[in-house]
Amino acid sequence: MPRNQEPIAEIKNVVRVYKKPLHRPRKGAARRFVGFLKREKQTIRALDDVSFDIHSGECVALLGPNGAGKSTTVKLLSGILHPTSGQVRLFGVDPYHNRIACAMRYGVVFGQRTLLWTHVPVLESLKLYQKMYDIPKPVFNERLKEFAGILDIEQHLHSAPRRLSLGERMRCEIIAALLHQPEVIFLDEPTVGLDVVAKKRIRDFIRRVNREENVTVLLCSHSMRDVEELSDRIILISRGNIRFDGPKRQLKRQWNNERKVKILYKRATTKGWRRQLQDLPGVINLEVNNGQIACRINQAQIPVSVLLQTAMTLLEVDDIEVTEPNLEDIIREIFGDENRSLNQTTEAH
C-alpha cells in the first residue's frame, strides 16, 4: 500500500447530523393538535467524529449494519452532502464545493438507484455520458467494447434497462460508472439482489479495474463474499463511529480468538456432562443435537486442547472438527455484541 503519497480521499473529524421528525403517539386531541403544529425533531449523528484516508490504488471496504453511516460517508466523499463539521477532501479539494470537477474524476454505483434512462436503450445513455464526460470517441468505443465483452452484455446494449434483469442492468450501471476512466469508484451495494453468477462476474470485473487500471475502490456492501474477495483494507463503522480501520488480516487476527468446535459422540460416560461442558470458562453457546455437540469457544479463556480433553473424559468421542471463523462470523460477532450491549442499555433505562 503506497502510504508515502498524498491520500486520494481524506475525511477528518467529520460530523454529519440529520434531523428526523419524531412520530410520538400523543394522548388527547389538544396534544395531538399541538404535535401536528410543532413536530418534535430527533437529532441523529450519522457520522460522529470520523477520520480516515484512502490512498491511490487501494480497495477499501466500508462495513457496518444498516444506518451505520456508510452511505453518508460515500455521499460526503462524492460531494452530494456537506459535513456538519470537519473536513472532507477528494483529490486534494473539497468535493462539495468542487462537485463538477470531482465528478469528472470519480464514478459511483448505487445498487438501489439507476444511472441509466429506463425507457431507452442502454447505449443511448452511454453515448450521452460520453459527451458529458468528454470521453474521446475512440477511447469510448474501445472501452465499451472491452467492458461489454468482459461483463457479457454486448447483446443488452440495445435494450432498454426496464427490459433487463437486475444482474444485466447492474453490469450496465457499472460500465456507465467506469467508461470515463475514473480514478476512484464508490460502490454502494453493487451486488445487492444479484445471483451468485452475476455477483462473481461483477466482483471479478471490479478486481480487474482495481489491479490493472489502478482505480481506487471504496466498497460498501453487506456481502462478506464481496469484501473477502475484493478488499485489502476494512473500515468497520457503527452508529457513526469507526470501530476498526486496518488490513483484513489484522481484523481476522484481532478477533480470531474464537473457534467453532464440533464433537460427534457415541454416548455419554458421565451424568451431567452437558452442564459440566457448558460451565467451562470460555465456552459460548453450546448446542447438542443428535449425537453432535456444536459450540463456540474463546481460545484466550480455554484452549481447544483443554476442551477436547474434558469432552473425552465425559463422552465417548467419535470425531472432532475445529474451524476458524470467517469474516462474516467476525463481523456478526462485533456488531452482535454491540446490539446486545445496546439492548442491555435500553433495558436498564
Partner: peptide
Amino acid sequence: IGIETFQIRPAGSIYQILAT
C-alpha cells in the same frame, strides 16, 4: 427519489432534472 444520481454527474443538477 433523491437527487444523488444528478449530483454525481459533472453537470448542474437542475439542468439535468430539466433535460432528463
